[in-house]
Design a protein around this nucleic acid. Structure first.
Lengths: 215, 215
DNA sequence: ACGAGTTGACTGACTAGTCAATCGACTGTT
DNA sequence: AACAGTCGATTGACTAGTCAGTCAACTCGT
């Protein structure tokens, strides 16, 4: 406090107020919901003055936008990475499911906010970020299409639909945890990953065989 | 109109203002969202005075509660009915999927409101009506459990999870239509019903066989 | 003339966003 | 070493506007 002053300067000093505001916002949004909370709640939670929130963000909306885009970029990057690294379709889907479930396990509040306030908000942020959300569906659909091309997945189920069902199943699980309808804990998270992949692939893979008749 | 007066009286006369308000609310909630709209928007849409809304409903919330409970009761009754009528597990699930998809097909706005504003609103109405929502999951889970008992479905996949995945898949499809990510129209609706059941059952039915190994 | 149904101006409470003032770390000057 | 100046970070009182819900009055059928 009295010894070193130069080495710190602006970079260290305060634990980055902007970050503190974002982290506080996650907690507040998760507990009260974006619409129900006040900007002052965020400022209080962050231990910062009301006005400082507007020094770093143009509006309440921008805070949520930032949180979503920050995290979603990581998701998209992960899906691309997984698609390039893994070879087995099932392994790819399992890796994606793992990433999402692990994200929830690591920071439940953040995932709750992203899903409840953005991904499923058809009248507000969901529309704003529709392109980003769709990007994820498309990347997954591409994986399914490739799997169909190499004969690993049935060809008579639309890839877009499969992607929607797969991602939707994962999101529904998170929703189950968010609503407290599903037991939480690492063991359950691991099992959940397997269950989603098993359920979706069991209905997609030709390996299943002998059950391709539509009607 | 001039002949019989007693049979009509208050019941006929105006097309039931209360109903008009509810119907208008569906449109307004669907277009603007529950939080974004004003009560005056509902009154205007219904062609009714602002104050009359409060003559029939205690609050803005109560309007949405009414819409949800009204429709959800029908859903629960249908699931119970289907469970009693049908015998094949797959037929039961198909009947449930049909009812929900047909509900959307018949009144997209109402289903959008119920899903977006209630079923997926973890911080507001979703909590309020959690018991009702859970009831649906439980009824579906019971169907799965029965199917497992008679050997039609794999026993190693938790019934609660299967129910969540099944219902979640349906809801995700509706979301796809709501967001405009999926093509609409009767033909697509019919195919969607088949796809959901095929995907979920393909992963649940023992008929699939030869693919039961967990890891 | 009674009252259920209906009206819409109004109130009370709330909050997103603004802004002028203050703080404090650092610089250059003497 | 003392000091004035600079500028981004920080503060919180305040403004401007919004909107859910109230209520006194009016309409009209019987």
């Amino acid at each position: 406090m009295s010894a070193s002053r130069p080495p710190v300067a602006r970079a260290k000093n305060g634990p980055d107020k902007r970050r503190m505001i974002l982290d506080a916002a996650v907690r507040v949004f998760a507990n009260q919901g974006f619409h129900a909370c006040r900007v002052s709640d965020i400022a209080d939670e962050a231990g910062v003055a009301y006005g400082l929130v507007y020094h770093y963000f143009a509006s309440k909306d921008e805070i949520l936008d930032t949180l979503f885009l920050e995290r979603w970029a990581v998701l998209l990057a992960t899906i691309r990475h997984v698609d390039a690294e893994e070879t087995e379709p099932r392994a790819k889907l399992h890796a994606i499911a793992s990433f999402i479930v692990d994200s929830y396990s690591h920071d439940p509040d953040l995932m709750k906010v992203i899903i409840v306030e953005v991904t499923r908000a058809a009248n507000s942020f969901g529309q704003t970020h529709l392109a980003q959300i769709r990007e994820a569906y498309d990347l997954i659909a591409a994986i399914v299409t490739a799997a169909q091309a190499e004969g690993a997945f049935k060809a008579d189920i639309d890839a877009e639909f499969a992607a929607l069902a797969f991602y939707g199943a994962i999101e529904q699980m998170l929703t189950g945890w968010i609503f407290g309808l599903l037991p939480r804990g690492e063991e359950h998270y691991e099992r959940a990953k397997w269950l989603v992949v098993e359920t979706v692939c069991g209905g997609l893979e030709t390996t299943t065989a002998g059950n391709t008749l539509p009607r």
